[in-house]
Computed example of a mutant assay.
Amino acid sequence: MRCPNCGSLDTQVKDSRPTEDSNAIRRRRVCLTCQFRFTTFERVQLRELVVIKRNGRRVPFDRDKLMRSLQIALRKRNVDPERLEQMVSKIVRELEGLGESDISTDTIGEVVMAHLRELDDVAYVRFASVYRNFRERKDFEDAIAELASEEDGKAAPPQRK
């Protein structure tokens, strides 16, 4: 493992333990060159996922990009970082479990929104506003009405743009 401080490949694992959800191994490492300490996470990867963008481009799936977009949606929301990490792991496992290596951005967006809907309504609307490309106030009102109807037990089908 390359040291993020000096770039040396001469690092040593000092401690290993599973994460709370046991879906990853947390390793504390030390660089033997500069003595910098850092943490890495090791996860099981069932298959290499490729994201098919709306314009047809194909790019490798990036778990960190998913995490960043969810952190933006959850900014200033009272959600435990460990819950976010667990949700990202569930989303990735669900995508890997679809049985396909090629996943469309639409599929990813719908899976993410389903998980966000359960976690935090405000984050759900924030994410939906970008994913569904909201253009006017009515788009927000429709998303909020969709959430309200689900809470009332009248699950409305998602509105697609």
Results as ranks from 00 to 15, higher is better:
C34P: 02
R126M: 02
L32E: 03
R57G: 05
R68P: 07
D106M: 11
V130T: 05
Q159G: 10
P4R: 08
E85Q: 11
E42S: 04
S129T: 03
D106P: 02
V51M: 15
A145G: 14
S8V: 02
S16W: 03
L84T: 07
G7I: 05
S101C: 14
S69Q: 13
G153Q: 06
E20K: 13
P81C: 04
D10S: 15
N5Y: 13
A148N: 12
F134K: 00
E85M: 09
Y124S: 08
P158C: 04
P18C: 03
E136A: 10
K53A: 08
R57Q: 14
D102W: 06
D21I: 00
T11W: 10
Q35K: 13
K161Q: 12
P157N: 06
T33K: 15
I91W: 03
K90C: 00
E136F: 10
V51G: 09
I25M: 14
A145N: 15
S16H: 01
E141T: 08
Q86E: 15
R17K: 10
I103A: 10
F134H: 00
D62H: 06
E151Y: 14
E82A: 15
T39H: 07
I144Y: 06
R26K: 09
I52D: 01
R54N: 14
R2G: 01
D121W: 12
T33W: 05
L84V: 12
V122N: 00
E110R: 14
A145E: 13
P157S: 11
F36H: 14
F140I: 12
R43C: 05
K53N: 04
N78Y: 11
R132A: 01
R160W: 03
I144N: 03
E96G: 10
K65T: 10
V59W: 01
D15T: 07
T40K: 08
A114R: 15
P60M: 14
D102F: 13
G97N: 14
R83G: 01
T107C: 12
D21W: 06
S104D: 08
V13I: 11
A73V: 03
S101P: 06
S149Y: 11
A114V: 07
F127L: 02
R117P: 03
A143D: 02
D120V: 06
P4I: 05
C31K: 04
D64Y: 15
C6E: 07
C34R: 03
V88E: 00
P158E: 02
Q35E: 13
V44K: 10
V13N: 08
Y131A: 05
L147A: 05
V30W: 04
I25L: 09
R126T: 01
G109C: 05
E96F: 09
A114S: 12
N5G: 05
R137H: 10
E118N: 15
Y131L: 05
S89P: 03
V79Y: 12
A143G: 03
M113V: 01
V111Q: 05
K138F: 04
A24P: 00
D21P: 11
K161T: 01
R63W: 08
Q71P: 00
E94W: 09
R135L: 06
S149C: 08
V44G: 08
G153A: 11
F41N: 11
I103H: 11
D10L: 13
M67I: 14
T40W: 00
